[in-house]
Design a protein around this nucleic acid. Structure first.
Length: 297
DNA sequence: TCCCAGGCGGTAG
DNA sequence: CTACCGCATGGG
């Protein structure tokens, strides 16, 4: 059992990090801790007073390095928040709400598959499908008396037929996962070379060649795995909040995506990706609160 | 029940 | 280039 304690970290709240929509393999436990699988490691994270306690098992690699990298611990989020907080009042509120958000450094292959699954889908179901894929095509890894499963490798997932994938609950995304897995395995898109590209647009062009990867999914991959902070993924929530704040179009669905991204680049400069995450998390959660009140409970 | 979800690919204009 | 549509599934 590995252990690592972080004292007084800056901008680190488990609920913000894991519930802001960037990742799908972390689950809250009865004691408020979260357990998740990162590559070949199972990790439990718990907040205690002002410390963060990581425990877990790792098959290969250095536990502390895995955590430092995955949780982006060498980045100063206070600086980001200070810059973005000056932009306007809603941005300031969003930052206060999602104060403990950090953008994780997720595995590229896992991120690609996960966000192809995210298309026209909801977060609970995305998580369910990914767990089922891991159960069927990942490797067992034991921690704390329980069995967990690693995210499947391209090799392992390529054993699945389109019908097998359909049976995982993927729906119409089955062929996209099948084709993309094959393209990556055959290095039609070489992920190691892609990581070395020096600008966001050339990375995006490569990602867009994959079946099931369009503009939105590509931007999520660029932000959540490739640390491109200058992207601005536009989904229904971000479209909604940007329209409400700045555009005021009566028909929200008609608001042009390019207009939103141009506006975001202008307002948030090189930090649009971070800004997007605060806005998404705050706006989506405001809606949940409204819904709960609406039920009159 | 019906609407909706971190959209994409294909086709038509 | 933009506009629209079909798509599988299950959560709320």
């Amino acid at each position: 059992m590995e252990k690592y304690i972080l004292q007084n970290p800056d901008s680190f709240k488990l609920v913000d990090i894991f519930e802001c929509g960037q990742c799908f393999r972390w689950n809250i436990q009865e004691d408020g801790s979260y357990v998740g699988v990162i590559k070949n490691a199972v990790i439990k994270v718990k907040e205690e007073n002002s410390s963060i306690i990581f425990t877990g098992t790792v098959r290969n690699g250095n536990f502390k390095e895995i955590i430092n990298n995955y949780f982006d611990l060498n980045t100063n989020y206070s600086e980001y928040k200070q810059k973005l907080g000056k932009i306007d009042n809603y941005m300031k509120e969003s930052i206060e709400f999602g104060d403990g958000i950090r953008i994780l450094n997720q595995d590229l292959w896992e991120c690609i598959i996960s966000f192809i699954i995210s298309a026209n889908n909801n977060i609970p179901r995305i998580k369910k499908i990914i767990e089922k894929l891991s159960l069927n095509y990942g490797e067992k890894i034991e921690f704390d008396g329980k069995i967990y499963y690693t995210f499947p490798t391209p090799e392992s997932l390529s054993n699945a037929t389109v019908d097998d994938l359909r049976n995982m609950g993927l729906g119409f995304r089955d062929k996209r996962i099948f084709n993309t897995t094959k393209m990556i395995l055959d290095k039609k898109v070489n992920l190691e070379e892609l990581k070395k590209l020096d600008n966001t647009n050339s990375m995006r062009e490569e990602l867009l060649r994959l079946d099931g990867v369009g503009p939105k999914v590509a931007d999520c991959i660029l932000l959540f795995s490739l640390k491109r902070l200058d992207v601005f993924p536009v989904d229904v929530w971000v479209r909604r909040v940007i329209n409400e704040l700045y555009i005021h179009n009566e028909n929200e669905e008609k608001v042009n995506k390019n207009e939103i991204q141009a506006l975001a680049r202008e307002k948030f400069l090189g930090l649009s990706g971070i800004a997007q995450q605060y806005l998404f998390y705050y706006r989506k959660n405001q809606n949940n609160i409204t819904k709960e009140n609406g039920k009159g409970a």
